[in-house]
Design a protein around this nucleic acid. Structure first.
Length: 857
DNA sequence: GCAAGGTC
């Protein structure tokens, strides 16, 4: 059998292109984690079986070791020295397993990852996943390509090189630095300020070497605006009547900031009374057509001209791409590859109802070769791939597609040419001028009309002739403050300062919006909030470096040394981390400088929130801070107790927890089907029993359960044997859908129901009952908890007209006929899964923790 | 609950 060659690309679309070119379209494709294309061919002159597949971006991502995940147990300073681990970035995709399986039996590995630093890093992630080792005649090759055209792919195949370890190491360095710096500052700031103020309205007070300088731009502009002092100015404008035109002339001095001087010049010119034509000049000007469209340019136009935010614009563009309407939308390049098929692309639009006529014109008159632009070697510029109409795409997608078409056609169109005529005048020693414009060739502006040069007619003049001044005015004005930065301007600043990449720029902007640091206002301007301003002003007080764009360039420069092989990876990481550790220590020491700004804007916890629930320790009322993360604050004990998030919280009948004496609360999720449950503020944050598997609201991470803010143990998970609110007392039977227990919702009247303490399954009980409660008895048949139902007198289903009924909801015919499973599967007594599951609910005493004893109560 | 970078 022919030897096998495994080839791996960065994304499925590239794998498909490579396989299509090398196989001439004759291949077999199967779908595993990603698609695998197989075909026969020749490799280095020998017949082989090719196997082409892909990853989906990075295979691994960096994080801290598990023992550093708990915010409360970790000092953020320790994070700088903390060990890091690489874990699969999308575990569900099983990319490692996939690569390992596909590599079996392959003698050669060819890496077709994108040709940038990140791609180089992914090369080594792929090598690690395949378990490929360059021995026993096995070899690893790197294909270098600048586009996925036939020419480039074949060229890469005949010039295979080795992957570049230094570039990959540079990415490893960046990952470690970004992680440690970002997480350390974020955790410290968040804990400090959320532990002090009650109305910060952001769960996380994040810091990052990209997001923070981005916020810095927006806040700096805010400061420029608020410190702006307008200045009055005066400008001299003579008017003339000539050949039926009234013309306003521009002053050579533009404007003066002194009224008296301006009026003095006015008098001088008035005295002269005439303007002499000094010079008439005519110049042929041209306005260049655009070069190829890259991502950043598209995002800027989407924001400024279409009102589409970068995140949304990217989503729409990706959809247009996967549907085949446009080429790959993530590219930095503005130069078309030399092999680009202009005719083919034009041809695709030739019958488009909107662009067809223009395309025909370009095809018949001969299109113009585009301007050169820059080629970063990633993907060609963004271009249309096939014809579409607004009906096919929907409004927003259409606007984006329409622009991509217009831009593409613009790049192949002639320049716009116009004649600019300037007439210069003199009067009383002062110079004035006027300008006329006449377009001779519209060129690309006829398909991109918003860029058109405006026509300005001026009459004919003769040099040396004198013209009477009709009147002369001094116009008074004042300088205007700049406006807030538009999203599009922020993108430009990020690009200019090397902050983020085409793919991550939208994410950073989105981040500072989501964290409530800025708000997108009219005209998509990013206006900083009080929180955003306080943060940046704080950094400016303590250590301005922290919010300047140089912080990113510094990191990029340092890892650049690793990429070029001029510095050792671990020495660079050590050096950079050390610098940031010092900054961090100083920041922590000086945090009161920033806090002074927060104090002026935000309310301390003790002044925030409404009085609710008595503290079990001091027996005084605590306060509920409603803003995220919602929490209770005991002013006497100076303790914070996080509550379940995103719901309403009420007192639960002044009942208290038998374990700690805290007053119980009821949490309700919004919506008619939202569940309600009691919880004890203390137990919720510090579960008194070990072995509680899934805490409510906890992130679903494999392995250890961590108590994040807002996650904890409600009463429905509590294994207390006698407390009337625990799972033991309120549990009825096993959930038919998962391993959870159905518990009685004690406040669900009149729509009584049971809900699962693990999944979102629930069961409605007889509606309108006066009272439904659990009893201490169990069903002898299925071990479910016996319920006591007090029916409403008017609607009682009991034949004798009585209201009290006791029974098992599974085995009692009457009760079972009145209950209804509201979600998912049917809810039958004999589910064929045996009685065993029925026992799991409250009957399963094995679930109790062995540590639990009455000593604790 | 944390960063920034890939990609879906």
């Amino acid at each position: 059998m022919a030897p096998k060659v495994l080839m791996v690309a960065e994304k499925p679309s590239i794998a498909l292109s490579i396989a299509t070119v090398l196989s001439g379209g004759r291949m077999s494709t199967r779908r595993v984690s990603t698609e695998v294309h197989e075909f026969e061919g020749k490799f280095l002159g020998f017949p082989v079986l090719y196997r082409v597949t892909s990853v989906i971006g990075h295979v691994f991502s960096l994080d801290f070791h598990g023992r550093y995940q708990d915010w409360n147990a970790t000092n953020p300073l320790d994070l700088f020295d903390a060990p890091t681990v690489k874990a699969e970035s999308t575990p569900k995709a099983h990319i490692v397993r996939h690569l390992n399986q596909e590599a079996r039996g392959c003698g050669h590995l060819v890496l077709w990852l994108d040709c940038d630093r990140e791609g180089e890093n992914i090369c080594f992630e792929v090598i690690e996943s395949t378990g490929f080792q360059s021995k026993d005649g096995k070899k690893i090759y790197r294909a270098r390509f600048s586009s996925v055209t036939e020419k480039d792919i074949l060229n890469a195949m005949s010039n295979l090189v080795e992957p570049n370890k230094n570039e990959a190491l540079a990415v490893d360095a960046r990952q470690e630095i970004d992680l440690k710096v970002g997480v350390a500052f974020t955790r410290f700031q968040t804990s400090y300020f959320n532990g002090k103020y009650g109305n910060l309205d952001s769960r996380v007070i994040s810091y990052g070497p990209c997001q923070t300088p981005t916020l810095g731009f927006c806040v700096q502009r805010h400061l420029d605006i608020s410190t702006f002092k307008p200045e009055k100015f005066w400008a001299l404008h003579p008017y003339i009547l000539h050949q039926g035109y009234e013309l306003k002339l521009q002053w050579e001095r533009h404007r003066l900031f002194d009224s008296d001087t301006a009026h003095m010049f006015q008098n001088i010119v008035k005295e002269d009374g005439r303007l002499k034509v000094i010079r008439i000049s005519e110049k042929q000007e041209s306005k260049s057509r655009p070069s190829g469209l890259n991502t950043v340019k598209l995002l800027k136009i989407a924001s400024s001209a279409m009102g589409l935010g970068p995140q949304l614009a990217m989503q729409l563009a990706e959809r247009l791409y996967t549907q085949g309407y446009i080429s790959y939308p993530r590219t930095e390049s503005t130069a078309y590859p030399s092999s680009f098929d202009y005719k083919g692309t034009l041809g695709a639009l030739a019958r488009n109802p909107e662009f067809g006529n223009y395309v025909q014109l370009l095809l018949s008159d001969g299109y113009h070769k585009p301007r050169s632009g820059t080629d970063v070697g990633d993907h060609p510029p963004i271009t249309p791939m096939c014809s579409a109409t607004e009906d096919m795409l929907g409004h927003d997608s259409w606007k984006l597609y329409q622009y991509i078409c217009q831009h593409f056609l613009g790049t192949l169109s002639p320049e716009c040419k116009y004649i600019k005529r300037t007439v210069e005048f003199e009067s009383g020693g002062e110079s004035f001028h006027c300008v006329g414009q006449h377009v001779t060739t519209k060129g690309f502006t006829s398909i991109m009309p918003w860029l058109a040069v405006s026509e300005k007619n001026i009459p004919q003049f003769t040099e040396g002739k004198k013209i009477d001044i009709a009147r002369i005015e001094v116009e008074e004005g004042s300088t205007q403050p700049p406006d807030y930065l538009t999203e599009s301007e922020v993108i430009s600043l990020m690009e200019k300062n090397g902050i983020g990449t085409d793919a991550s720029i939208p994410v950073h902007i989105n981040n500072i919006c989501e964290r409530n640091y800025v708000q997108v206002q009219a005209g998509r301007r990013l206006v900083p909030t009080v929180l955003g301003i306080s943060l940046i002003r704080g950094y400016q007080c303590i250590d301005p470096d922290l919010c300047l764009p140089d912080i990113r360039s510094f990191i990029e420069h340092q890892i650049g040394l690793v990429a070029k092989g001029q510095a050792d990876h671990s020495l660079v990481v050590q050096h950079v981390i050390e610098q940031f550790r010092r900054k961090f220590t100083y920041f922590v020491k000086q945090i009161e400088d920033m806090d002074a700004l927060f104090e002026a804007e935000f309310s301390p916890l003790s002044d925030t929130g409404r009085v609710l629930s008595k503290c079990g320790k001091c027996l005084r009322y605590m306060k509920l801070i409603a803003s995220q993360p919602s929490r209770l604050y005991c002013g006497t004990c100076e303790e914070i107790y996080y509550t379940p998030q995103k719901g309403t919280i009420k007192l639960y009948k002044e009942l208290t927890c038998p374990l700690d004496n805290f007053e119980l609360l009821i949490f309700s999720l919004p919506g008619p089907e939202g569940k309600s449950f009691p919880f004890c503020p203390y137990c919720y944050n510090s579960p008194p029993f070990e072995g509680i598997g899934n805490l409510y609201g906890a992130a679903k991470t494999a392995g250890a359960v961590t108590l994040g803010k807002g996650a904890g143990m409600p009463c429905f998970q509590c294994p207390h044997p006698t407390c009337p609110h625990s799972m033991i007392s309120q549990g009825v039977c096993a959930c038919p859908e998962c391993d959870g227990t159905l518990v009685l919702d004690p406040v669900s009247a009149p729509k009584w129901r049971l809900y699962c303490n693990m999944c979102n399954c629930f069961v409605s009980l007889p509606e309108g009952a006066h009272r439904i409660s659990t009893t201490k008895d169990h069903c002898p048949n299925c071990d479910s908890t016996i319920l006591e139902v007090d029916f409403n007198k008017k609607t009682t289903p009991l034949k004798d007209g009585g209201t009290l009924h006791v029974g098992c909801i599974l085995c009692d015919e009457l009760l079972h006929s009145l209950v209804e499973m509201k979600h998912g599967r049917s809810f039958f007594r004999n589910r064929g899964r045996g009685r065993g599951r029925g026992r799991r609910g409250r009957g399963n005493r094995k679930q109790q923790d062995p540590k639990m004893s009455f000593r604790d109560f």
